[in-house]
Amino acid sequence: MIFALLSWIGADEIAQEIIKEINPNFEPWFNPIFEPTGELEGFLFSVQVAIGALILGYIIGRLHGRP
């Protein structure tokens, strides 16, 4: 229940709001070249995890099997 009340938005988004409070005139002067949509973002994040986990798993597995 409590969890549903909280938004769990990114700390970076909160920081962007603070920036706008401190300096209301500031506009981001450069926009991301490519911005994934929600679904794609989740996928690309998991690809990042997969790359890392594959490396870690391969190495630990190999070391484990070493006589």
Binding site: W8, G10, A11, E13, Q48, A53, I55
Partner: peptide, 24 residues
């Protein structure tokens, strides 16, 4: 070196909720 970068890849992609009600 591979372990080091693998760990960074995995960990830095994990957006986790925290006590403050925001996530990082």
């Amino acid at each position: 070196l591979a372990v080091s970068i693998g760990f960074i890849f995995v960990l830095s992609a994990m957006k986790m909720p925290s006590v403050t009600g925001s996530c990082s």
